[in-house]
Design a protein around this nucleic acid. Sequence first.
DNA 1: TATCTTACCTACTAAAAGGTATGTATTGCT
DNA 2: AGCAATACATACCTTTTAGTAGGTAAGATA
Lengths: 134, 134
Amino acid sequence: MKSDLKQTEPTQLCAVDYAFKRIGGKYKARILWYLSMKGVLRYGELSRTLPDITTKMLTQTLRELEEDNLIIRKMYHEVPPKVEYSLSETGQELIPFIAHLHHWGKKHIEKEASTSQAILDERTKVCQSVCGTD
Amino acid sequence: MKSDLKQTEPTQLCAVDYAFKRIGGKYKARILWYLSMKGVLRYGELSRTLPDITTKMLTQTLRELEEDNLIIRKMYHEVPPKVEYSLSETGQELIPFIAHLHHWGKKHIEKEASTSQAILDERTKVCQSVCGTD
DNA sequence: TATCTTACCTACTAAAAGGTATGTATTGCT
DNA sequence: AGCAATACATACCTTTTAGTAGGTAAGATA
């Protein structure tokens, strides 16, 4: 398929881009963020912390984060199964930046909130119960 | 379609999530990053700075960034047309975090590079010519 | 008058990401 | 023997995002 040109594909690989690929995706940053808040979370706990994620996506996302060495998966050979997730060192390195994002996001959500208060109160409450109020 | 339940959809809106939505997407962070490096860039300059983006995506992405008040679009009524893009104040606020990401990414690219040197040299060069070596 | 330049626009198509629904494994408990 | 608990797996489908290929406008210049 369209073989001829650009066989080597020297698409620029910007560091920003590279980083984004590792933590992009709908849930990755949030999972890292929650893990940094809680330290260690079991699969089920994560699932309850992110009520809008399906088990398929949760598993898939966790796998990707693990492959990228951002989180550590520790499984206990028990029944029923028990698996714990926590941040790796590399993952920890990303927390300050996610914190910055969180701060920035919070600020701008509040700005927007001046127009539509009620809805936001409802929508942010789950997150706040995890993240703390500040 | 699946009307009954969850009519209000109080999907949690995490600040991290919110922020990610505003700068997620394949090119957004990179555009912001380049704009922070260069200050002001014309449409064509941006296009040349990100050689892998099509005009369709560039325009679309710029529009989204503008709607989100992250960049400022200044058009001169000349022919041929001239349009300049720069960071808004809100956009500027994101730079420290993108810088952090860039730093982190660079570090890990280099780590990986120990295995596959040549390819990376090639792939990072465009970005470095824009971003500087550090 | 034809051509050039710049900054777009617009169908249409392809690929990636995410969602739904259902199934599996193990073993302790009743 | 049957059920519950936990952490998944997998096939299939929908939505979102991105890419392709072409076109437009308008004045400046040859």
